[in-house]
Design a protein around this nucleic acid. Structure first.
Lengths: 343, 343
DNA sequence: CCGACTGGCTAAACCGATCAAGTAGTGTGA
DNA sequence: TCACACTACTTGATCGGTTTAGCCAGTCGG
């Protein structure tokens, strides 16, 4: 049907009997053409299926209708975490509504990530950038400012003024909710099997547990590399110790499942002998036997909110304030109960 | 530091004392400049951190160094399947090595998918396109040909000549492996809890089970919408029927976990009373108690292979033959055993 | 009745690369 | 010595939009 040649603004102009400039004015809703002419042009555009060339637009510095996301994580490990798929799906879902595409790129480290940001910016390939995994003294924030790019950081707290605004989840509140729930059930010895120590949320959650010593809860924090193997080993030694914890909280659902299995292999009944909970929820956590108590966070919505903030900033052409993301809620399931009176 | 103005080929030309055209020749390794001049130009390029403008390149029809992937799946459900994250990670991993980006877009249906393909093509935004979920009489193949675009289909069989080449996983062989394994254990009544009937691999797998009637295996196929709720309901009725199956195979791990739980709730011991297996593996499948026998496929590598084929086609400027993807292997775990002698 | 202003449009420059065509300058062969 | 080829460039067109400057006709104010 429609053969090779692409329909350009010049074609439309010829058909409408006006100049290319006039067509551009009409299309972009700016003054310079009469309403009558505008309607005629728009009709012809419609009729001939004209599509703007994003390359040409990008060249003159207009919108690229694309947002970039460079991810500095090991590619092989991404799949085991539903987090990223949900996040990306959420981001994309909001972007799609606005006919904006997502440019995804896996990079080795922060240095390469920043290099990619520069390329994207300098060639006008993206209108905005999404950042994740904030760290202390993050070099990316300054770089983004130097590039004069719009961006959002997905993190654990509001950004300081002048740096990249964030969409954040209050990890301390999340920890407060889960640990308090266990304490209210009567647990006084709680172990927290965490991720790597350098992650911000690990620190925030551990601090909450520490503070609960005031309420008579003795907490123990063990950091891991997130691997199920480590989780199994840690669980085994926790349950062999004396006195042993009556509740174990894991940083994610995969580790919790691994821990649950170890407990069962050691002959403990969950939740009678030990309660188990996770900071991360998933479909599986609710299906397993016993189902696992977890903090449910709406990662999809987190992605949507980040995309929304970014799009708003792009339209405004300026930074906007940080925004709090969806608040995780406690989903109590079968794996938690008051501790057995004897222990 | 490096302030606003972007470094263009004209800047480099001025610094090197040559014309912009000469710089272009030097950069693209084509004849027309002396080796000496070329070296000088490249040094200046390096020194001044010149970066090509992809917009300008795209405008003249050169490579965009981007590959497009429009996904017609409900955004909310993507996260529960590790498949997509792994696939995308695999694709991206190979693309990154070649400094190529992935343009991801979620769309509502095939019509919108094709519309996006047209936009991408007509504005030279992507060099190639990835397709997934082939269907009978797929309209996308013709459209891709009309756009004269490079593409790969991720599917279940080699593509017919002239259409979009595929990277495929032999779903019939996969089914053969798993069903035969169960038959060899002594199972003669096998149920298959499948996905939607319109998916190609559902049909292929079901056909394999049907053919096994010749070997004395009576199979039953129940299609679902992939939801754990349906899987639970189906499992409950399967295990209440008489005679009931001694083995149940699920299309993915989430459904298998749901089925396992139902069996346990009904007082059946797995695998003594009923064997359970899945066509899809995951970390969780190996951690759960009992761990679930599954067909392990290397989705990451599948993505890598698809990206490789696509990149090769882009370089060649022509279609290449379909290629077989990584062969899934059986991972036997605790959830399968010979059927109890009585039943 | 003249100048200033305004609405509606055109012409042309521009963005940053690629590439075909053209032009010096040198060397080669008859 | 002239034609010819070859090297090493330069010039200028080109892609498809956006945008500035300018033109013309009509209107208004004084």
């Amino acid at each position: 049907m429609t053969s090779g040649k692409r329909v350009t603004i010049a074609d439309i102009a010829r058909l409408a009997g006006v100049s290319p400039g006039a067509v551009s004015f009409a299309l972009n809703g700016r003054p310079g053409v009469s309403d009558e002419t505008r309607q005629r042009i728009l009709a012809i555009v419609e009729e001939n299926h004209w599509q703007p060339s994003s390359a040409a637009r990008a060249l003159v510095g207009a919108r690229a209708n694309t947002v970039g996301f460079a991810l500095a994580r090991p590619a092989r490990s991404l799949g085991s975490e539903a987090f990223f798929t949900d996040l990306i799906a959420g981001i994309e879902s909001r972007l799609s509504e606005n006919k904006v595409s997502l440019q995804l790129r896996l990079v080795a480290d922060i240095a390469e990530e920043m290099e990619v940001h520069r390329q994207w910016r300098s060639s006008n390939q993206v209108d905005g950038i999404i950042l994740i995994d904030p760290r202390d003294d993050d070099p990316r924030s300054d770089r983004i400012a130097a590039l004069d790019a719009r961006a959002v950081m997905i993190g654990s707290k509001p950004s300081p003024d002048g740096s990249v605004p964030s969409v954040w989840i209050a990890d301390d509140e999340v920890a407060e909710t889960l640990f308090s729930y266990l304490a209210a059930l009567g647990h006084t010895r709680i172990a927290y099997v965490a991720g790597p120590a350098e992650l911000e949320h690990t620190r925030l959650r551990a601090e909450v547990l520490d503070r609960m010593a005031a309420d008579g809860v003795s907490g123990e924090v063990i950091t891991t590399d997130f691997s199920p193997a480590r989780a199994s080993a840690v669980t085994r030694s926790l349950l062999s110790a004396r006195p042993r914890p009556t509740a174990i909280v894991y940083d994610n659902d995969v580790m919790a499942v691994a821990g649950l299995r170890v407990a069962q292999e050691m002959g403990r009944t969950v939740p009678r002998d030990v309660s188990i909970a996770s900071f991360d929820d998933s479909v599986i956590a609710g299906l397993i036997n016993p189902s696992i108590t977890a903090m449910t966070r709406d990662t999809f919505e987190l992605g949507e909110q980040a995309a929304t903030l970014l799009l708003q900033q792009i339209v405004a052409g300026a930074n906007l304030p940080s925004a709090q993301g969806p608040t995780p809620t406690l989903t109590a399931r079968e794996s938690t109960a008051p501790p057995a009176s004897d222990s």
